[in-house]
Design a protein around this nucleic acid. Structure first.
Length: 922
DNA sequence: AATCCGACACTTA
DNA sequence: TAAGTGTCGGATT
C-alpha cells in the first residue's frame, strides 16, 4: 500500500460507525496488514497485549477505552510492561469520541476528536513500513489532498462517462484545476471570506446534488466576468461576491460535470481541508496521478524529489547567483544589477510535468531577490521576476494544467512570505492571462518558438518560426540580454521499450544524423534538442537522465552531436539510484549532466552522493578525462585472444536442467549422460550453482528422442520457438535439440567471464572451465584462452576499463566483448611478460582453491575477501601495471587516465594507417 | 551472424 | 518487504 491508499483506508474507517471490538483490527488493516496477520492477532496467537487490547510486536499497542477514559487508558498503555517488551512504536487509545496516541520513540502525541484522526495519518506512517517517512510527513497534506481529489475524480467520471472520453478529458482536467484553484483561494483570503467557495456550494446546491454542476458553473462564470460587466451578464447575486479571476483559468466554457450525492459530499469534504498547506513544488507531481489511469495509486512514479531537482538547478545557475549575491555584499549598485539579471533569467523545462523544476527555480530565485531587496532596504518591493520567464512543455494535459496552477500558487505564496499578505492580495487578481506552459510533444515542437532567442546569441532568422503555431512569442516577448537555462527530468525509455510514436520522434530527430538512432534512449531526444537549441541561442542546460546515456553503446552515438566543439560538460552527477516517494524504486540509476558553451568560464565539478570534486574536464562517460569515444570493435585492438559471447538457447528454459532434473533424467536413462553438459551463465559462474543443459549432436537426434522426457522437452522447445515473433528463433523450431546460437567450442579449456557482476565486487568474475562446459549468452568465452588472459581479465585495470566504457545493469558492471575486451588497450606483451602473467593467473586460481567450495561471490565480497586471494590479485596487478607504467598506479583515476590515453594512441595510429592506405589507392 | 539492453525482474535475507 | 544482484531473449546491427 502506498501513502495515498493508506490515507483513503483510514478516512473510510473514520467515517464508519465506531465499532469497539473491530476498531483495532480495522485500524491495522488500513495500514496494510494482511488478513493472515490479522487472523493471528484476533485469535490471540500473536497478540501480546496485557490489557485486553491489541498489541502487535514491533508496532503498536491499541486499546479501546471506556467512554471518557481515553487519557487514562493511554497512560495505562504507556505503563504496560507488555508495551515495552514487544517494542511497540506507538500506543493508541480511543473511545470512539476522542482519540489519543503517542509515538514512543519521539514522544510526539496526537489528541483529537475520533472523526479527525485521519488528519494525523502522517503520524502513523511508520506503521506501514514506509521508509521515507520524514519526506512523506512533510507532504502529508499533499497526500491527503491527492487522495481525496482522486476519489472525486473517479466518482465524477463514473457519473459523467462522456467527460472521460479522449475528446473531453481536457475539459475534465481543466475543471479539476479550477476546483483546486478555488480551494486554495478560499483558504487564503483571495476570495472574500474563508471557505466561501465550499460554503456557497453547500448552501446553494440541493442536498440531492441535482443542481451542483449549475451552481459551480455559475461561480466559474462570475470569476470570468469583470465586475463592471456583471449586471449585464446577469450573474446571480450569491455568485457576485466572488472576484474576477480569469487569467485563462476561467476563460472558455464554465460548464461543470454533474454531481451525484456522493460526489457532492466528496467535494465538500475536500473543500474542508486547509489548502494553505499545499506545496506547489510536489503537490503537482502527486496529483498528476489523479488523472492517469495507469499511474493512479502509483503516487507519481516519475516524480522528481526536491533534493534531486536542486542537484540540477544549483550547479546549473543558482549556485552562481548566490555567489554573486555573496560578492555583492551591501553594494547597492551591484545588488541592483543582480536584480536586473534575475528579472531576465528564463528557466525552460521541456519536460515539465506538473512544473516542479519551474516552481523550485522560481521559489529559489525569489529567495535571492528577497535578500537583495532586504539589503537595499526595499523589503516590500514588488517582485521583478516575471512568472512568464518560467516556461515548460508537457505532453499530458492534466499535468500541464497543474503546472500553470502551481506557478500561480507559488507566486502568491512567495508574495505572502516576502512582502506580506496585504501586498500579495492586492496584486494577485486578476491572474495574468499569459500562459507559458505549452501542452505538446517536446520532441516535435520548436523550442525556439517557446523560448525565443534573447539577443546575446545570433538572432534567430530561421523561417521555421514562420510556421510555428506559437510565433506570437517572438513578437510579444522581449528579453534582450537575458539568460536561458534549460533543465528537467525527461522520460526515459530504453531502445526496446519505446512506443511506435516515440520511435518516430527519435527518427525525425536523429534518423538522418545518427546511423544507429534505433539504439538511443528516448531521453537522448531532449539532449539533442537542447544541443541544437544552443546553436542558435548559446546557453546552459542540464537534465536528469538515465545513466545509460553515459554508458556503453550510447555514448558514442549521442555525445559527438552535443559536444561538437562549442559545448562542454561542466558538471555531472555520477550515477545514483533513483528514488522518490513511490513505493518501489528498484532498478533505475540516473545521472545529471550539465552542459555549457565553451566560452563560459568557471569550475568544472563532478558530484557523487557523498562528494564534490573540482576537475579539469569531464568526458561523456562522466569521468575526469579527455573526451574519447569508445566504439564497438569486431576484433581486439590489442594483441589478445578473441572473445565471444556464449551460446544462446532461446529454449523457453526447456533445454536447461537444474541439478534435480539432471539427476532424475540420468537415473531414468543413463544414456542421457552423453547429451548433458554443465551450463554456465553469470549466476553459475559467480554463485557456483550448478545447472546442466541438453546438448545433442545432429547425428544423435533420433536416439535422443526415444527418451520420453527428452522428447517432451524438445517438443516444448519447438512449440516455444514457433510462437516467437522473431524469425531467427522460429526457424529453429524444426531443430529443437540445438541452441539457436552456437558461440564455439574449445579443445582444452574455456576461459569465462560473467556478463553482469555486482558493483561491489573489486574484481570481475573470471574462471576456467573444461571444454565440455557450455557457456551461455550470459557469459563471455575465450575458447582455449591462454592463462595469461585470465590475468588481464582479473586485473583491476580491466575492471576500471569495463566500469568506464561498458554498459551497466543498474549500477552493476555489464561485460561486453566488443565494447570492453576488443577495445581494451594492452601494450605489446613479450614472452617473458606472458610467462609472468601466467604465473599470476595460476596463483589467483590456486588461492581460490584453498577456500573450496567458496564461490566467487563469497571470495570477492569486499568485506570478507581472504587475505591470500587479495595478495594474489595485488601481485597480478603489480606485474601487469609494471608492464603498462613501470610502477603501480596510485588509484583508479590514474588507471583510467592511462587507459584512455593508451587507447587514443593505439587507435590514432590505426586511423592514420587506414587513411594512408586509403590515400595510396589509385 | 552476433550482441546490447531493460523508469527491470527476480531471489533472498 | 526492501535490499541485493543478475535471467532471458527480442531487436538491432
Amino acid at each position: 500500500m502506498n501513502a495515498v491508499e493508506i490515507e483513503q483506508a483510514i478516512s473510510t474507517l473514520a467515517e464508519r460507525p465506531f465499532d469497539r471490538v473491530e476498531f483495532p483490527f480495522a485500524f491495522l488493516e488500513a495500514f496494510g496488514n494482511k488478513e493472515t496477520t490479522l487472523k493471528r492477532l484476533r485469535s490471540g496467537a500473536s497478540n501480546k497485549s496485557d490489557l485486553g487490547g491489541v498489541l502487535q510486536t514491533n508496532n503498536i499497542h491499541i486499546n479501546v477505552a471506556a467512554p471518557g477514559e481515553v487519557t487514562k487508558t493511554l497512560a495505562a498503555l504507556k505503563a504496560s510492561p507488555a508495551t515495552d517488551r514487544a517494542k511497540a512504536k506507538f500506543i493508541l487509545a480511543t473511545d470512539g469520541e476522542t482519540f489519543e496516541a503517542e509515538d514512543l520513540a519521539s514522544g510526539e502525541t496526537v489528541a483529537c476528536a475520533y472523526a479527525d484522526f485521519p488528519d494525523h495519518f502522517g503520524f502513523f506512517l511508520p506503521l506501514a513500513g514506509i521508509t521515507t517517512v520524514t519526506q512523506i510527513r512533510e507532504s502529508s497534506f499533499d497526500i491527503r489532498a491527492t487522495s481525496r481529489l482522486n476519489r472525486l475524480y473517479v466518482e465524477l467520471l463514473k457519473d459523467n462517462p462522456e467527460w472521460g472520453t479522449a475528446q473531453r478529458r481536457p475539459d475534465m482536467n481543466h475543471f479539476m484545476a479550477r476546483l483546486i484553484f478555488c480551494f486554495f483561494a478560499e483558504d487564503t483570503d483571495i476570495f472574500n471570506g474563508t471557505g466561501l467557495f465550499t460554503a456557497t456550494i453547500e448552501q446553494m446546491s440541493a442536498r440531492d446534488a441535482s443542481n451542483t454542476h449549475e451552481v459551480i458553473a455559475e461561480l466559474f462564470r462570475a470569476m470570468n466576468t469583470k465586475i463592471a460587466d456583471r449586471a449585464e451578464a446577469g450573474i446571480a447575486r450569491w455568485a457576485d461576491v466572488f472576484p474576477y479571476v480569469n487569467g485563462g483559468l476561467f476563460g472558455g466554457s464554465p460548464e461543470a460535470p454533474r454531481f451525484s450525492r456522493i460526489a457532492r459530499s466528496y467535494l465538500l469534504h475536500i473543500g474542508n481541508l486547509d489548502w494553505r498547506k499545499i506545496n506547489p513544488d510536489i503537490f503537482g507531481s502527486m496529483i498528476q496521478a489523479v488523472a492517469e489511469d495507469e499511474e493512479r495509486g502509483a503516487l507519481g512514479m516519475h516524480y522528481t524529489s526536491v533534493p534531486n531537482i536542486l542537484k540540477v538547478l544549483n550547479p546549473l545557475f543558482l549556485d552562481d547567483l548566490r555567489a554573486r549575491l555573496n560578492d555583492a555584499g551591501d553594494n547597492s549598485r551591484t545588488l541592483l544589477n543582480l536584480r536586473r539579471r534575475l528579472s531576465k533569467i528564463r528557466v525552460f523545462d521541456p519536460a515539465c510535468g506538473s512544473g516542479n523544476f519551474l516552481v523550485i527555480a522560481y521559489k529559489e530565485m525569489r529567495a535571492i531577490e528577497a535578500e537583495i531587496n532586504r539589503r537595499r532596504g526595499e523589503s516590500a518591493r514588488r517582485s521583478e521576476i516575471p512568472l512568464t520567464n518560467f516556461r515548460g512543455i508537457e505532453l499530458r494535459d492534466f499535468p500541464a494544467e497543474i503546472a500553470r496552477l502551481a506557478l500561480i500558487i507559488a507566486e502568491y505564496q512567495c508574495d505572502v512570505l516576502y512582502r506580506g499578505q496585504k501586498d500579495a492580495l492586492a496584486e494577485f487578481l486578476p491572474l495574468d492571462a499569459e500562459n507559458w506552459i505549452t501542452c505538446g510533444n517536446a520532441l516535435q515542437l520548436d523550442w525556439l518558438s517557446i523560448c525565443p532567442p534573447t539577443g546575446i546569441g545570433v538572432k534567430h532568422q530561421a523561417d521555421d518560426l514562420f510556421h510555428s503555431p506559437l510565433d506570437q512569442a517572438q513578437i510579444d516577448f522581449e528579453n534582450e540580454g537575458g539568460e536561458t537555462y534549460i533543465c528537467g527530468n525527461p522520460p526515459y525509455y530504453g531502445s526496446r521499450r519505446q512506443q511506435e510514436l516515440q520511435k518516430l520522434d527519435l527518427k525525425q530527430l536523429a534518423g538522418a544524423t545518427i546511423q544507429k538512432w534505433k539504439s538511443l534512449d528516448y531521453v537522448s531526444g531532449w539532449l539533442l534538442k537542447a544541443a541544437s537549441y544552443t546553436k542558435i541561442e548559446p546557453c546552459r542546460f542540464a537534465f536528469v537522465c538515465t545513466s545509460s546515456i553515459s554508458e556503453g553503446l550510447q555514448v558514442s552515438l549521442v555525445w559527438p552531436h552535443i559536444l561538437d566543439g562549442r559545448q562542454e560538460i561542466y558538471f555531472a552527477h555520477r550515477p545514483f539510484k533513483w528514488s522518490n516517494l513511490a513505493k518501489s524504486n528498484a532498478g533505475v540509476s540516473v545521472v545529471i549532466v550539465g552542459v555549457r558553451p565553451l566560452s563560459d568560464k568557471g569550475q568544472v565539478k563532478i558530484y557523487t552522493n557523498e562528494s564534490v570534486r573540482i576537475v579539469d574536464r569531464i568526458n561523456p562517460y562522466l569521468v575526469p578525462a579527455a573526451t574519447v569515444y569508445i566504439e564497438t570493435r569486431p576484433k581486439p585492438l590489442s594483441d589478445i585472444p578473441r572473445m565471444t559471447m556464449g551460446s544462446m538457447p532461446r529454449d523457453g528454459g526447456h533445454l536447461i536442467l537444474d541439478q534435480d532434473e539432471a539427476r532424475n533424467l540420468l537415473e531414468a536413462a543413463p544414456v542421457v549422460g552423453r547429451w548433458t553438459r554443465r551450463y554456465v551463465g553469470s549466476a553459475e559462474l559467480i554463485r557456483g550453482s550448478v545447472r546442466h543443459c541438453l546438448w545433442i549432436d545432429d547425428g544423435d537426434v533420433a536416439l535422443a528422442r526415444s527418451v520420453p522426457e527428452i522428447l517432451k522437452r524438445l517438443n516444448a522447445v519447438a512449440e516455444m520457438r514457433r510462437q516467437s515473433p522473431l524469425e531467427s528463433t522460429a526457424e529453429f523450431s524444426s531443430r529443437p535439440h540445438r541452441f539457436v546460437y552456437l558461440a564455439g567450442e574449445s579443445k582444452v579449456r574455456t576461459v569465462g567471464i560473467g556478463g553482469v557482476s555486482s558493483e561491489r565486487r573489486p574484481y570481475l568474475p573470471v574462471d576456467v572451465f573444461d571444454s565440455r562446459t557450455v557457456l551461455s549468452n550470459l557469459a563471455f568465452a575465450i575458447y582455449d584462452g591462454p592463462l595469461w588472459s585470465i590475468s588481464l581479465l582479473a586485473s583491476r585495470l580491466h575492471l576500471v576499463w569495463i566500469a568506464a566504457v561498458c554498459g551497466k545493469m543498474k549500477m552493476d558492471f555489464r561485460y561486453s566483448n566488443t565494447l570492453g575486451w576488443n577495445t581494451f588497450p594492452v601494450p605489446l606483451l613479450t614472452d617473458k611478460n606472458k610467462a609472468d602473467l601466467t604465473r599470476c593467473a595460476e596463483d589467483i586460481l590456486l588461492a581460490r582453491e584453498v577456500h573450496f567450495p567458496a564461490c566467487i561471490a563469497d571470495l570477492y565480497d569486499e568485506d570478507s575477501m581472504p587475505a591470500d586471494l587479495r595478495e594474489a590479485h595485488e601481485r597480478n596487478d603489480e606485474v601487469l601495471e609494471r608492464i603498462y607504467m613501470g610502477r603501480r598506479f596510485r588509484n583508479d583515476t590514474e588507471r583510467l587516465e592511462k587507459l584512455f590515453d593508451l587507447y587514443t594512441k593505439m587507435t590514432a595510429g590505426q586511423g592514420i594507417a587506414r587513411r594512408r592506405r586509403a590515400e595510396a589507392l589509385p
